[in-house]
């Protein structure tokens, strides 16, 4: 009956050591073969993936930190730039104020100077004109006097008259 050897202990007079050996050998051989051809490579790939993911996460974390740092840096730079720009504008304004003041002062001084020069010039010209006129007057009066008094006044009187006239002219001035 085929049930005989399927029931525990029914192997009777012979112990089937062969089955035990076969089971062991087949199972161990299967395990070794699978380890070499299937589980080994598969575990390798899974490990690789694990490493890859871990490194990717690390990289992502690192780049996140880096970009955060850079953002902070950029923000600082921007702030600096803004302050600097403000400063520059302020300085320019101040500078403009100063130069405006300076220019005005210079212009005022220049104007004063020119006015003085003009006044002086005018005075000079007037003096010159007066003296010229006086000379002309003297000459004219001399001429006139000569013409009027040609015959009646002596040379002495003539000279006296001239001097008188000159003195008067001087007084007039």
């Amino acid at each position: 009956m085929f049930f005989d050897h399927l029931v525990l202990g029914a192997t009777g007079e012979f112990l089937n050591i062969g089955d035990i050996a076969a089971t062991l050998i087949v199972f161990i051989a299967l395990m070794l073969l699978l380890k070499k051809f299937a589980w080994g490579p598969l575990m390798g790939v899974m490990q690789e993936r694990e490493d890859l993911i871990a490194s990717e996460i690390e990289t992502a974390e690192n780049s996140r930190l880096e970009s955060k740092k850079m953002l902070e840096e950029q923000r600082n730079l921007l702030k600096d730039a803004r302050t600097q720009a403000q400063e520059i504008v302020e300085n320019a304004k101040k500078q403009g104020e100063v130069s405006r003041e300076e220019i005005i002062t210079t212009a005022r001084a220049e104007a004063g100077r020119m006015k003085d020069a003009a006044v002086l010039e005018i005075a000079n010209e007037r003096d010159k004109a007066i003296s010229a006129v006086r000379e002309e007057v003297v000459a004219l009066s001399l001429l006139a006097a000569t013409k009027v008094l040609e015959k009646e006044i002596s040379e002495e009187d003539n000279r006296q008259l001239i001097n008188e006239t000159i003195a008067k002219a001087g007084e007039v001035q």
Partner: peptide, 14 residues
């Protein structure tokens, strides 16, 4: 002693 049926089926399964 071998039970050849066992041996064969073990091999098939493996």
């Amino acid at each position: 002693w071998f039970n050849l049926s066992n041996v064969m089926m073990l091999l098939v399964a493996a």
